[in-house]
Design a protein around this nucleic acid. Structure first.
Lengths: 206, 206
DNA sequence: GCCGCGGGTGAGCGGGCGCTTAGCCTGTCC
DNA sequence: GGACAGGCTAAGCGCCCGCTCACCCGCGGC
């Protein structure tokens, strides 16, 4: 199993969304939001991609924003899950950091449509949905910072500014969703491996 | 003079845009686009921020998209200028790379409203304007890659994948526009210095 | 003094948006 | 086989969007 598969590039994603019509609408919304952005996407476009009439959307979702909210929450939860599975395994801080970055980057590349929506359309959410998603992001940040702190404590890493470096590492990973292109020369696995190496250098891993 | 000042955090930006009303509209558009995104911003909002009636916008700009185009082109030109000034100075490849990253990051932090529009609203442009701006981006990429290649050639850097590492360095710099917050704990200069150090580690500078 | 002209406004047009409503199929239970 | 519930559609409501148009004001030239 490749890192891309174990990082959520599965054949049948969104399996937790039922019934079938609701899932089709959600998948259509992810595509449309990723391509054109939330505000430039119309409910007619989403319904059309799902092969349904515009009114069908409102049987399964109260508003267009609820679609974005659902996508954002599920997407963040999956990313966090991928990161935790890799970062809480056995091994030294360096091994855990490399695994975490590799998986997290790989997910952002393989699932770059979801990741783009999740990372860049956040501000279109209303205050309470926004707060919920931001709380998930803080958990992601804390996970990475924890590994870096472990490495510093054990003397394996040489980092002067832990918060700043954590920010930079997160930043590097997240931006993959912006530039990654399926038709480009690199596979998600390759980008993950490259970035894991770069991050180990950033923290001065011995 | 701080790096923030020499990197374009000047008191009177957009001086090249005349007449005065056209500049006020453009500045208002930058603010609005950065806050809410291009598609979520209305022409009435832009005109209102500039203290004018909605119709006034169309005296100075043909369409709302022309505003975005102008902002994007001027913004990219300034960023490229900042990068070139720093990256083509005297010194070793390591010194030039550090200066380039410091200035470029500093610009993205100090001018994060412009940078956010420039980096994230690109896809709202029509095909010909999009192509023009993408050409400028390729020049930015080439500039950074050139410095890294110099360092590899002279043996100062240890980089296995030059294009991939260039991509990662650019990615790190650009993402600053997404997360930087004026009310946060770091000044643009501090972020620039931190990132310059991290990038030197990424390229394995001796 | 009047003219022209660049910069501005108030009102509003056509259209597409998010969302609703009335009603229609299709399967299930008795 | 009639009642009914869930899933879906055609039609359309009210609103606000990008943008236009008819008109107005202040000011330099003759």
């Amino acid at each position: 199993m490749s890192a891309a598969e174990e990082s959520g590039g599965e054949a049948q994603p969104w399996a937790e969304v039922t019934p079938d019509a609701a899932r089709r609408l959600l998948v259509a919304a992810v595509e449309a939001f990723a391509e054109r952005g939330y505000h430039a996407t119309t409910t007619r476009d989403i319904a059309g991609r799902a092969g349904m009439s515009p009114a069908a959307l409102y049987i399964h979702y109260k508003t267009k924003e609820e679609l974005l909210h659902r996508i954002s929450r599920i997407g963040h939860e999956k990313a966090l899950d991928v990161l935790r599975t890799a970062g809480r395994g056995e091994g030294t801080a360096a091994e855990r950091l490399a695994d975490a970055v590799r998986s997290f980057v790989c997910w952002h590349a393989a699932q770059h449509t979801v990741a783009r929506v999740v990372q860049y359309e956040l501000d279109a959410l209303g205050p309470e949905a926004w707060a919920e998603v931001v709380a998930l992001r803080r958990q992601v940040d804390a996970e990475v910072r924890g590994i870096i702190e472990d490495g510093v404590a054990s003397g394996a890493f040489d980092v002067a500014d832990v918060r700043g470096t954590t920010l930079a590492v997160m930043s590097l990973c997240i931006d993959v969703a912006r530039w990654f292109n399926v038709d480009g020369p690199r596979t998600p696995d390759e980008v993950g491996a490259l970035y894991a190496g770069l991050v180990l250098r950033m923290v001065g891993a011995k």
